[in-house]
Amino acid sequence: MAGLARLTRLKRRAEFLRVAGKGRKLGRGALLVQVLEGGGDEATGNARLGFTATKKLGNAVVRNRAKRRMREAARLELSANPAPGHDIVLVAREPIREAGFAAIRADLVLALNKLGVKRNQS
């Protein structure tokens, strides 16, 4: 998880609620992506990420697997093309249980593009 070292994490409930309340949202396949522009880590300007899966999705094993897959998709996508100054929350949806990893990553990319997240293309 070396790539997530520069992408800090949202951990407090208040941070998640702020993104959900003030940010833009887009459901795309296996994911619901919530983005709040102007957030991010104030000191470095890097994006901050949060991951969540509700109990509706399944037991702890299923929820943790979904979060691991979302973290890896975000690590691969945002380490290559960072989104500075954004708070991004990824919420697992029911289709993530059956979705392949490539589909999860494609859903993330399409959602970020549709939400207009400015990413540094390398």
Rank of each mutant, 00 (worst) to 15 (best):
F51C: 12
L7H: 09
K56R: 13
A111R: 04
D107H: 11
G100F: 11
R18N: 11
A99T: 05
R18A: 15
Q34R: 05
A92I: 11
G3R: 07
V109M: 11
R105S: 13
V109H: 07
F101P: 08
E37T: 06
A83W: 02
L36Q: 05
A5D: 12
G38Q: 07
T54E: 06
D107S: 12
A20T: 11
N113Q: 13
L108A: 10
N81C: 08
G29C: 04
T8R: 14
A106C: 08
A74Y: 00
N120Y: 07
K11C: 13
A30Y: 14
S122W: 01
V117E: 05
S79Q: 12
Q34L: 15
A74P: 02
G3S: 15
G21E: 14
R93G: 01
L7T: 04
M70P: 07
S122R: 15
R97G: 00
K11A: 15
I88L: 08
F101V: 02
M70R: 04
K114I: 07
N59M: 06
G21R: 09
G38D: 10
L4M: 15
F16Q: 03
A53M: 04
Q121N: 09
V62S: 10
R63F: 03
I96M: 06
R97Q: 01
A53I: 12
T52W: 02
L90I: 11
A111F: 08
A53C: 08
D107I: 07
L10Q: 05
S79R: 06
I96R: 00
A102K: 06
E42D: 11
A47W: 03
V117M: 07
L57Q: 10
Q34N: 04
Q121P: 06
A53V: 10
R9M: 15
R97H: 00
R97L: 00
A83P: 03
F16V: 05
K11W: 05
L10K: 00
A102T: 05
D87I: 04
E37F: 07
D87Q: 03
G23Y: 03
Q121H: 09
A99N: 11
R18P: 01
A20C: 09
A66K: 08
